[in-house]
Each structure stands twice: as structure tokens, then as C-alpha cells.
Design a binder for these strands. Structure first.
Lengths: 117, 117
DNA sequence: CGGTATATATCGGTCAACGTAATCTACCTA
DNA sequence: TAGGTAGATTACGTTGACCGATATATACCG
């Protein structure tokens, strides 16, 4: 499961949404760093429905346009929880290792007040 | 950047390692959930070297076999830090949303002692 | 009348990841 | 001594998620 898919599941964890709504939610969650393209979005949704991690909640017709709502299934919630835990663990390991390393790339210094000048 | 690549960078964050060593380190970091295959490993390393996130540290010949050590570059450390932060944020959002949701899929119950039976 | 926002569908290309196999040496065991 | 395991890298073909582009249709604003 890649980042876009993970974020789609996360967006749906707060409650059912239609495709376009997911796109907006994902942009917000990721602070604008991830913008779902139509191809990515509907491709992923189709896949997730087939895997039964997501289900079609209901369909509406608004202004002659179809609006299809998706919701997270229990299996989807479980999968998301599992992935989230893994992601957080991996991130924690990476961050702790980077801290232990003399870090030159982030603009930080081990001597922030220049005491050793 | 996908999970295998992220874990390779994380493995190298602790210090230079050769390919096979990375595989073992990744298995340990991920608690056995990610087992890098040769194709994934060396493909990713080649890509990372080309992107200058990883560099060849040194080469040794042990028992007639080549052993090539890789290390994280400063750019690689920066990239890893950025990704780790993002991953952690996404994981946190997902987990907080799942908590807010009546959770049926994890084997937990709101009535763990069966008081409402 | 044209542009933007809303909303979904589909197609083809790309590239990371994946699986497998091949190669070679050292070492242990049967 | 033959075979299996561990270490270590290379090569090759396949899969599949993601992405860009395109198409379609309505409503609203300037």
C-alpha cells in the first residue's frame, strides 16, 4: 500500500465521502503535499472496493451528476490501523537514528549558541 | 519513495553497510515484516546512488567476493528526515481518526469485561 | 460566452518493486 | 566427497500503483 492509498483510507476513516471529497480531504491531511489525480483516485477506489477495504455507501444524483459515497469497511479500518502503526514505528526508528547521527543536512548544529567558536 | 526504499535509507542512517547487511538490518527494523529481495535491494541502491541520496563508501574483496559498502549522504539524511516526519504525521492522523471511530475490526470491545452481557 | 469548480470515467505510459534464477566462495554435515 | 546453508552480487522479466491526459456534463460567475 502506497501513500495515496493510505491517505484515501485515512480520509474515509472520519466518515463516508464521495470521490471528489476524498481528494480535498487528502490535500488537507497531507498539508498540500499530496494532490490526488483523478486517475489515482478512482483507480485506487476501484481496487479498494474489490479488496473489500472500502465499500460503496450510497449514490446520489445532484444536478444531474452522479455522486458516489464510499465508506471504510471494518476490514479497511483494521488494515489502516495496522499500516498506521507500522508507519509510525518506521518513522520513529528513522528519526531516532538520524538524531544519533552527526547531522549536517538540516541546518541544525550540535553547538547552537556557538560556545565552541 | 516507497517502504523498501525508506527502510534502506533508515538502515544506512546508523552507519555504512553492504547490501546484504542492509537486508538483515531492514528485517530487524521492520520486525520481520519486510524481507528485501535481491532485485528490490540492488535496484533501489542503484537508484539511490544515482539520486545521490546514497554513496558507495568503499569496496572490499573478501574470499574472492566483492563486498560493496554504502553510506547515507547528507542529502539522503535530509530526505529521510523529511519523509520520516511526513510518515509520522500521516500515521498520527490515521490513528487519531480510527480512535474516534467505533472500532469493530481490531478485536477490541467497548465492554471488555462483558458487563453488558 | 468563456473560465472555473464540481464530479466521475478511462486509457496508456512509466517506474519502483517483485520474483526468480544464476553465479561464486566458504563452511558444515552426512 | 557430495550436498546443503550462509554470504554476496548481478541480471532479467513481470506486475501493478501511480500519473498525466482526455472526455463528459452541469452550475455559476464575470
Amino acid at each position: 500500500m502506497q501513500e495515496p492509498t493510505f491517505l484515501i483510507l485515512t480520509a474515509l476513516a472520519a466518515g463516508p465521502k464521495h470521490g471528489y471529497g476524498v481528494t480535498q480531504e487528502v490535500a488537507e491531511i497531507s498539508e498540500g503535499t499530496v494532490t490526488l489525480r483523478a486517475g489515482t483516485l478512482y483507480g485506487a477506489l476501484d481496487r479498494l472496493v474489490e479488496q473489500e477495504l472500502v465499500a460503496v455507501d450510497r449514490q446520489e444524483v445532484v444536478d444531474g451528476r452522479l455522486r458516489r459515497y464510499y465508506r471504510l469497511t471494518d476490514a479497511g479500518a483494521g488494515k489502516l490501523a495496522e499500516r498506521a502503526r507500522r508507519l509510525r514505528k518506521h518513522a520513529e526508528v528513522a528519526e531516532s537514528r538520524l538524531q544519533a547521527r552527526p547531522n549536517l543536512a538540516l541546518g541544525f548544529t550540535a553547538d547552537p549558541f556557538g560556545a565552541c567558536a
